[in-house]
C-alpha cells in the first residue's frame, strides 16, 4: 500500500544525484533492460530507494514512475524505507531454519527491541530475514552489514550487537 501512495504523490522538483550515480544512469540510459541495474545502484548508494530519487530516475530514464514502483515492489531485494545504520540479516533458508534460525531471530528481537523488518528508534539497527546466503555448511548464519557470522549460538548475539553499537 505504501508503494501505491508514494507512486501517486505529486513529483517534486528534480534533485541533485551523486556524481557516480548520475554517470551510471547516463551510461546505462540507452541500454535495454537498464531499470533493475539502475535501482541496484541507487540502493547501493542510499541503502534503499528514496522517493525523490525514484522520481529522478523516472525522469532521467524516461520511464513511467508506476513502472519503477511496480518493479521495486515485485523484488524483495529493493527497500522503500531507510534501513538502520547496521543491518542485521538472519538467514531463514532451509539449512538455517532446521538449525534454529527462527530462535536466532527471536533472540535478536529481544536484544535490539524491534520486530522483523523494523528499525530501532535510534536508527542504529534494522532486522530482516533473508533467504539462503550460500553458507549453509555453517548454519545457522547471519550477516551484519554484509559481514558473515556462521555457526552462531544465541548467547553470541548480544556480543555481536555490542560490537556494532560502538561502530
Amino acid at each position: 500500500m505504501q508503494a501505491v501512495q508514494e507512486a501517486t504523490a505529486l513529483p517534486k522538483q528534480s534533485i541533485e544525484l551523486p556524481e557516480d550515480l548520475a554517470q551510471f544512469i547516463e551510461a546505462w540510459k540507452t541500454k535495454p533492460g537498464n531499470l533493475i541495474m539502475v535501482l541496484h545502484k541507487v540502493q547501493g548508494h542510499y541503502g534503499y530507494v528514496p522517493r525523490d530519487v525514484a522520481f529522478e530516475v523516472a525522469a532521467r530514464l524516461d520511464v513511467p514512475l508506476a513502472k519503477i514502483y511496480g518493479v521495486i515492489t515485485f523484488y524483495h531485494f529493493f527497500k522503500l524505507r531507510k534501513p538502520g545504520k547496521h543491518q542485521i540479516a538472519v538467514c531463514m533458508g532451509t539449512a538455517c531454519y532446521l538449525k534454529g534460525g527462527e530462535d536466532i531471530i527471536k533472540e535478536f528481537e529481544t536484544i535490539v527491541g524491534v520486530g522483523l523488518n523494523q528499525t530501532t528508534t535510534d536508527g542504529l539497527f534494522s532486522l530482516e530475514a533473508v533467504r539462503c546466503i550460500g553458507c549453509c555448511g555453517l548454519a545457522p548464519v547471519l550477516t551484519v552489514d554484509g559481514e558473515v557470522f556462521g555457526r552462531v549460538t544465541k548467547d553470541q548475539l548480544a556480543g555481536i550487537v555490542a560490537k556494532y553499537r560502538g561502530k
Binding site: G33, I36, M37, L39, H40, F74, Y75, H76, F77, F78, R131
Partner: peptide, 8 residues
Amino acid sequence: LRLGAGAF
C-alpha cells in the same frame, strides 16, 4: 552481468 533482486 545482470543482477537478480531476490525473487525465486
